[in-house]
Every structure is written in structure tokens, then in C-alpha cells.
């Protein structure tokens, strides 16, 4: 598993319960309620490695700690990127951070998207809302190793035109001749001339070979449920479908039990699961 890469002097910081100090390099507004934080190790000596799909625990001093997926390029080791929706006290405090402010980072934690296992196959990424953020590192990886994969499909749904994440990158990716990138919004007024409707509508006609496809899904659970159904209807096996689950993660190392999901812990066994391994508990409402 990828870990923080430290010099000998820094090794003391490798305790998973102990935050490492990072400094904010940049805060970028993405949409009205989301923003991206670029973080660098405070002393400049650390190189941060992670696998696509993993998350960090980000700590705003005096406010609290929250789990946030890493959303940057896994090939970039100097800057750690997180895209965050401001929904609670901690994330709202993060939105007010400025360049040079300190943030505590624990991580990376959790399982990863199976980008290596998917070599030689079609990749179908289906995502909605801020779910694009945890999938972006996997997409970066696929782009950087484009020849390792067959067809690559990215299907993204957002609430409205103004809620579309990473708009400039999506435009760039849509322009590539060897990628199929579709964007849709649930609701549209005015100047939007793109697709309107749910993201699952693309699945029946997207170009991929269901028998040789690895599907990666991240979004609200209801959206994932319908997406899985549409993929299965196309003939994709549940063992080839991977989902990123979200629960109330606290310790991030499987001690506290806050994120227990049946016999699993989201923080330690997930957040990325092969769907066939959680299929039996996925529909249980109480979990």
C-alpha cells in the first residue's frame, strides 16, 4: 500500500493517529459549495504517495477532523489535492483557509480503485455530484497509461450546470478522440445546451464490451444502485463493478467502529469495494 514517504528524521510522523502538518498552497473555488485545497508538507521534505480512491483525514485545528477523498493526480507527489464540499463546521472552516495556513493530515487510508487489475479492459466510470472527486485520480492514472486500456468511458451527472465539477478538465477530456465523456445535469434552465437527465441514461448506449469491462462508480447511494442495475442489464458482472462507499469515518484505521458496514469497516476495508463482495448488504437500509 502507498504511504507517506518520509526521510529518517520524519519517520516519527508515520503514526497513523498522528497528523502531519501541511500548509495550504492554494484554495480554488469549484462551484458555489465546493472548493479544492492544494496542500504541501510543511517543511517541504515529504513526498506524498497514494493510490486512486484513498482518503485522508484532514484536521482544522480547534475545529475538527473529517475524511476527505484525495482528488489529485497520483503521479504528483509534492502537492496533495482534495476537493471538498462545505457542508459542516469543519469543511466550512476549510473553505476559509488561506495560502500558508496549516492543516493536519493523516493518511492515506483505505482501499483503492483497481486500476492495475483493469489493464487490458474497458474502463467505465460513472459518477455523480462530488463523486467525481474520488474518481479523478483513477481517471488521471488511466489517461497517463492510456495504452494499457481499451475503451475509456466517463459518465458524469451533476445537479445543474453550475454544479459541474472540474469543468475545464471535462471540456479537455471531451475533446480527446479516444475517450467517451458524457456530462448531464438533472435540471436545466437558460443557456445550457448539453444533456439533461440522469447519468444512467448513457449506460445502454455507451460503447464498451460488458464482458471485458471494469466499472468504477461513485455518487449518492441511490444513484449507485440505479447505475449498478443499468450496468448489470448491459451484461457487466457484479465482480467487475466497484463502488466507493461513504459512512461516518472517525479513526480511519478500523479501531473506533463508527464506519462499520456489516462485517466490514469502510475506512479499512473500503471505501472502494468490489460490488459482489458487498452485494448482500448493499440494500440493507439499517446499515
Amino acid at each position: 500500500m502507498s504511504t507517506l514517504e518520509f526521510t529518517k528524521e520524519q519517520m516519527v510522523l508515520a503514526d497513523p493517529m498522528l497528523p502531519t502538518w501541511f500548509r495550504v498552497q492554494c484554495v480554488r473555488r469549484e462551484t458555489h459549495d465546493t472548493f479544492t485545497l492544494d496542500l504541501a508538507c510543511q517543511d517541504g521534505g515529504g513526498r506524498f504517495s497514494f493510490a486512486p480512491g484513498q482518503f485522508n483525514m484532514l484536521y482544522v485545528f480547534g475545529v475538527g477532523e473529517v475524511p476527505i477523498s484525495i482528488s489529485g493526480d497520483p503521479a504528483t507527489k509534492e502537492i496533495v489535492v482534495h476537493t471538498i464540499r462545505a457542508v459542516g463546521a469543519v469543511t466550512r472552516a476549510m473553505r476559509n483557509l488561506k495560502r500558508g495556513d496549516q492543516v493536519g493530515v493523516r493518511g492515506p487510508f483505505g482501499s483503492a480503485w483497481p486500476v492495475k487489475e483493469a489493464v487490458g479492459r474497458d474502463i467505465v466510470i460513472v459518477t455523480g455530484g462530488i463523486g467525481l472527486a474520488p474518481l479523478r485520480p483513477a481517471f488521471y492514472h488511466v489517461l497517463a497509461h492510456r495504452n494499457d486500456y481499451n475503451r475509456v468511458v466517463l459518465l458524469y451527472g451533476a445537479r445543474t450546470r453550475d454544479d459541474i465539477l472540474y469543468r475545464d478538465e471535462l471540456k479537455l477530456w471531451r475533446g480527446e478522440l479516444d475517450l467517451e465523456v458524457e456530462v448531464t445535469v438533472d435540471s436545466s434552465v437558460g443557456r445550457w445546451r448539453g444533456n439533461v437527465g440522469v447519468v444512467t441514461k448513457f449506460i445502454p448506449r455507451a460503447e464498451f464490451d460488458p464482458g471485458n469491462t471494469t466499472a468504477l462508480i461513485c455518487g449518492p447511494e441511490v444513484m449507485m444502485r440505479f447505475t449498478i442495475q443499468a450496468l448489470v442489464d448491459r451484461g457487466v458482472e457484479t465482480r467487475d463493478i466497484h463502488v466507493s462507499m461513504e459512512r461516518n469515518m472517525k479513526c480511519a484505521v478500523g479501531f473506533c467502529g463508527h464506519c462499520q458496514y456489516g462485517s466490514k469497516f469502510i475506512c479499512k476495508d473500503g471505501p472502494v469495494f468490489r460490488f459482489s463482495e458487498i452485494e448482500d448488504i448493499f440494500g440493507i437500509r439499517e446499515l
Binding site: 455523480g128 455530484g129 444512467t200 455518487g219 449518492p220 444513484m223 440505479f226
Partner: peptide
């Protein structure tokens, strides 16, 4: 039926979070 289900999903406003 597909369009009815899609409409229901749109009505759910899945991506909205009270901030």
C-alpha cells in the same frame, strides 16, 4: 418506464446537500 424512473430520480434531487 425508464423515463418515469429517471424523472423520479431527478425529483429526488440526489446531488443536493443542505449547506
Amino acid at each position: 418506464v425508464g423515463r418515469l424512473q429517471a424523472t423520479r430520480m431527478q425529483l429526488l434531487d440526489l446531488y443536493h446537500v443542505d449547506t
